[in-house]
Write a protein that binds this DNA or RNA. Structure first.
Lengths: 211, 211
DNA sequence: CAACCCATGTAAGTGTCACTTACTTTGAAT
DNA sequence: ATTCAAAGTAAGTGACACTTACATGGGTTG
């Protein structure tokens, strides 16, 4: 929303050497790289500062502490994610399973391609659980799934059944994502074609089942 | 099973004050508590040593580094888990969905009741991915599930279909467990009765689906 | 029974980190 | 031109992982 400012310390307020000019957003870029490289638990603010060419105390002019930096990053990433999700369902007809599959693929691809950020966004982070901004941002993202599910089932998005089915789908893609990036599936010799798996799952969860 | 030795440094090999007598296992107990209390990423060896009443260098006589302590703990926990799983399916008839549900409940209960250990055992830990002892221990546990699934489907346990269905179930209970302990589900206002959810899932994954 | 030795303990040290405090610089408003 | 607050720095605190050199003492051996 605010600052997707590009690479490095370009444009606005070019620094004099002392005052940086755009440290906040450059720090976020640096942290993003480090989170990807070392994981959100193991990156250090000190190293991000070094990367940005400032002292290790400088970041504290822009963020109170580690969790606050991470929150800013998560907010950014979720915004981007919501946009991507809207984009990937758009080509498929409303109410089709393809939409569901596209959303699942989008989730899993995020995990595979950016495991560090995925862990940060969809895992636990100290002090992020009760944050209202993050809750709201999460609702925006999950709401896209619930709506697509409701359209498949031909019910209203606020029908609890839609929420339940969406949650069942979520558990599967979420579980699959973690088992993949944590290496548990591969460790157990489990490797199935992913699109097939996704398709079978959405069929079983959203289809009628003989009782 | 082995040493639920109570508080402090009791019984066997009572120390002279200098040599502890059974530091290795007391350290493991201390670490287990700390992992539960602060999470496997945030516990410190130093604090475990303090808890055991020894210097901060002492643990390094028994373990090379942090991951090695954690590995010992995981091996213990998985052994216990495999035993518990065999125990919970035992009352239910072979080939019944109750067996599957019991296994699912067992997994989720572990996550809920011991989130710290669950994260450690079923999450990612530095240098645990390619460890052969851990892989083998994991196979033992997952094998119980695959066997139960095969019995429901009336096929051989080495049939790839059994592995696939078992994996689908795994993704769901795994995903559900993480979403619960990370607070993501509650954050989104999602709270369904768990046994109902489990039952619906096992029905859908192991039942025939009209194509 | 004495001597020894090695597993197991300690103290002290290194380098890193998160975060704080007191001071400095500088662009912008007055 | 002066001033002032935002944004930077240096130096410090306390914690930690892990290392090194040294200490202790129980079990084995002569």
């Amino acid at each position: 929303m605010n600052n997707l400012s590009s690479d490095k310390k370009v444009e606005v307020a070019a620094k004099s050497g002392y005052h940086h000019g755009d440290l906040r957003s450059e720090l976020l870029n640096a942290v993003r790289l480090l989170v990807e490289e070392k994981g959100s638990e193991n990156f250090s603010i000190a190293e991000a500062a070094r990367k940005a060419g400032v002292s290790s105390a400088a970041p504290y002019r822009h963020f109170n502490d580690k969790p606050e930096i991470l929150k800013a990053l998560v907010m950014q990433a979720m915004e981007e994610k919501a946009m991507e999700m809207r984009r990937v369902i758009e080509p498929h007809p409303i109410g089709s399973l393809e939409r569901i599959n596209a959303l699942g693929k989008c989730y899993i691809d995020f995990a595979r391609n950016h495991p560090g950020m995925f862990r940060l966004v969809f895992g636990k982070t100290e002090s992020h659980e009760n944050d209202d901004d993050l809750r709201q941002q999460g609702e925006k993202v999950f709401g896209i799934v619930v709506e697509a599910v409701a359209q498949v089932l031909g019910i209203q998005a606020d029908d609890p059944e839609a929420l339940k089915r969406a949650y069942m789908l979520w558990t599967m893609v979420h579980g699959h994502s973690w088992l993949q990036i944590d290496g548990k599936a591969k460790q157990q010799g489990i490797e199935f074609p992913e699109d097939h798996l996704l398709n079978e799952i959405s069929n079983r969860i959203l289809g009628e089942i003989p009782r």
